[in-house]
Design a protein around this nucleic acid. Structure first.
Length: 623
RNA sequence: UGGGGAUUGGUGUAACGGUAGCACGACUGACUCUGGAUCAGUUAGUCAAGGUUCGAAUCCUUGAUCCCCAGCCA
């Protein structure tokens, strides 16, 4: 988030808080290692005495992260970084029935890949890695405290009964256990804790307001009985806290200043505050008195989640796509998961630019996915090395070029960045061009190769098509061309005797037929054909795009792709990305399950198309 | 039906009682050894109706539309 980033409403709230030092300032105890060398120490020293801004990203480890989460990560980490504060990664692992350790590793990797380093030993804004389950003891103590304060009770209604007694907007809910004596609730709560009751037998409920128009306040459940193995606490607990009960304390314990969440939690904010206030009721600032010291009270702020067009983001639907083989895996490059878009070739920088571009508001807007694609083109255009690749080859014989001759031409690695230098690309009598770059019977504005027409081969020569060779079925198998030696390197030839200047309107990419490397190229497109999948039929999978993946198994790429060349950027994630000239951006496929990201066997090259170049020719309808 | 939110060009987002701006897209043109990139220009907007005010996207009233909420999910 740059300094000139627009001041969205959360920014404004934070600035107001900072102005009045609502959260105090960082001190020598929590600023970090001020004596550490490098950026870590520097960040800690700069933090000292500044208003506290401490954010967190609190995923539940029950699935993979997707672009929607990126918005939240960028927001939270970006705010911490902008204000020189801290950022925590915290797993909200309060439901062992749905969560798995496997996801913890994947989520950490995804968050780090985005550049939101949470480890204070590795990143200047790292606040730490935390687990809600590490706070279970404290949360439980608070629960007993509420019971003793008469603010919570054990309710023996079944889930169905609670649901039936929920009431209506006008009719209040009921529970016969509401006025149970505190001692009895306390005894039952301890029995619940000790595993002496079966699942569903009873719950601990807060005594708030059975008639509230906000149903969240109709005596919400704090603890339910779950006899399940927890990935972190093992079999220690038989009761697990509900989200509403747990979340505010997680923020409180970590001294989070701004607890950012999505709009659907707006109705939960009164609860969030009620729980903290209930614990603080009777507590004092200095800890004197029977209940001890007041606890930290974070501020919950809600923002609209990301809804990209042509995309499905709900965990349920993503899971279904994997389970029902609509895609190959969680990291299938068609998936909107972080692992999917990473494998697709998107860069963290592009995702950051996108998230900053779309802003932060409380309005549920659908964001055009082309914005994400544009952000990616933008970034890759600046840094991706250019290469030539022929996806769908057509043989060209240059009849007047000597059979035994091979030339090497210098081709710029990146016209956007002259310092990237040039590489040498071999050329000989027999080359391959793109089938789409030739038309026997071209429409008016087709500038590429056609019978009698002349074009430039990128950085090589100008050629003219003399003859078209076909097989018995009339399919074009080969082109016979001639080249002009005066155009060596692709330069314009000298003017004719009459001063006339010859021009070509097109430059084609090409590869040397004998020396090009075979490759498989996977062309990815959006997974759905409609902006809001399922909007018309109700079933999003009716709108699946059958052409979201096209595999070209017979592509040919220039030989420099056989190894890593000096002009390639040092990609932090090890994923090697290129621009195939006139096609788009591609990366060498690296499935996230493969540990070695660098080596690959020659002849087994697989490229994933990240995003196409803009193409005004195809857009013109090829008319 | 009760409660909680929201509504500014095609899309996204600014303005905080004082000239409705920016970005993306689209369209024109220039340039180009990528029909890419770059550069220049054009396009188009305050949900509606009243009211307050010298002046309203902004404040008030009424209405419309959309989203969220009746899990022992988060």
């Amino acid at each position: 988030m740059s300094a000139e980033a627009p001041r969205h409403f959360i920014q404004q709230i934070i600035e107001e808080h900072n102005a009045e030092q609502a959260w105090g300032v960082w001190n020598e105890h929590d600023a970090g290692p001020t004596d550490a060398p490098g950026p870590l120490g520097q960040a800690a020293r700069q933090r000292l005495g500044k208003p506290r801004v401490h954010t967190r990203f609190p995923p539940e480890p029950n699935g993979y992260l997707h672009v929607g989460h990126c918005k939240s990560i960028c927001l939270n980490y970006g705010l911490a970084r902008l204000h020189g504060g801290k950022f925590n990664l915290r797993f909200d692992d309060t439901n062992p029935a749905k969560e798995e350790a496997e996801y913890v590793e994947a989520i950490m990797r995804d968050v780090r890949w985005l550049g939101a380093e949470f480890d204070p030993a590795l990143g200047p804004f790292g606040g730490g890695l935390f687990f809600a389950s590490d706070y279970f003891d404290t949360m439980y103590a608070y629960a007993e405290e509420l019971v003793r304060k008469g603010k919570a009770y054990v309710c023996e209604l079944s889930a169905d009964e609670v649901s039936q007694r929920r009431g209506t907007p006008k009719q209040p809910a009921t529970s016969p256990f509401r006025d149970r004596p505190a001692e009895e609730s306390l005894r039952l709560l301890r029995e619940m804790r000790d595993g002496r009751h079966s699942e569903g037998a009873m719950t601990l409920r807060a005594k708030i307001d059975l008639a509230s128009p906000n149903f969240n306040l109709r005596d919400p459940v704090l603890y339910r009985i779950v006899h399940a193995h927890h990935h972190n606490t093992g079999d220690k607990w038989h009761i697990y806290p509900m989200y509403d009960w747990a979340h505010g304390f997680e923020d409180s314990i970590e001294h989070i200043t701004h607890s950012l969440c999505t709009l659907e939690f707006e109705n939960h904010r009164p609860l969030y505050n009620w729980f903290i206030d209930a614990v603080n009721d009777g507590r004092t600032a200095d800890g004197s008195g029977p209940w001890g010291k007041k606890i930290w009270h974070s501020r919950q702020i809600e923002f609209a989640k990301l809804i990209p067009s042509y995309t499905l983001l709900s965990k349920r639907n993503l899971l279904r796509m994997v389970k029902e083989n609509m895609v190959e895996s969680w990291d299938d490059p068609r998936m909107p998961t972080v692992s999917g878009i990473r494998r697709r070739g998107y860069t963290p920088e592009a995702i950051w630019a996108f998230c900053e571009d779309i802003g932060v508001t409380k309005f549920d807007s659908v964001i055009d996915v082309t914005r994400l694609e544009n952000a990616c083109r933008d970034h890759l255009n600046k840094i991706a090395p250019r290469r030539m690749a022929v996806l769908n080859p057509l043989r060209v014989i240059i009849e007047n070029y000597p059979e035994d001759r091979i030339e090497h031409f210098d081709v710029p690695n990146n016209p956007e960045d002259p310092s990237a230098g040039v590489r040498q690309v071999p050329f000989s009598r027999e080359i391959l061009i793109e089938r789409d770059d030739f038309m026997e019977d071209p429409p008016k504005k087709f500038f590429r190769l056609s019978p009698g027409n002349e074009v430039r081969l990128r950085c090589a020569y100008w050629i003219r098509c003399e003859r078209v060779i076909k097989d018995e079925n009339g399919n074009i198998t080969e082109l016979r061309c001639t080249y002009d030696p005066d155009t060596r390197g692709g330069e314009s030839p000298p003017p004719g005797p009459d001063g006339a200047i010859r021009k070509v309107k097109a430059t084609l990419h090409w590869v040397d037929a004998a020396r090009a490397l075979p490759a498989t190229v996977r062309l990815y497109d959006r997974l759905f054909t409609t902006e809001e999948p399922g909007k018309t039929t109700g079933n999003p999978f009716d709108d699946l795009n059958p052409e979201a993946l096209r595999v070209l198994a017979d592509a040919r790429v220039e030989p420099s792709l056989a190894g890593i060349t000096p002009d390639e950027p040092r990609w932090a994630d090890g994923i090697r990305r290129f621009q195939f000239e006139r096609h788009g951006y591609f990366c060498i496929d690296v499935p996230s399950w493969r540990a070695d990201t660098r080596p690959f066997a020659q002849g087994a090259l697989i490229f994933n198309r990240t995003v196409t170049l803009k193409d005004s020719w195809s857009k013109a309808g090829k008319s």
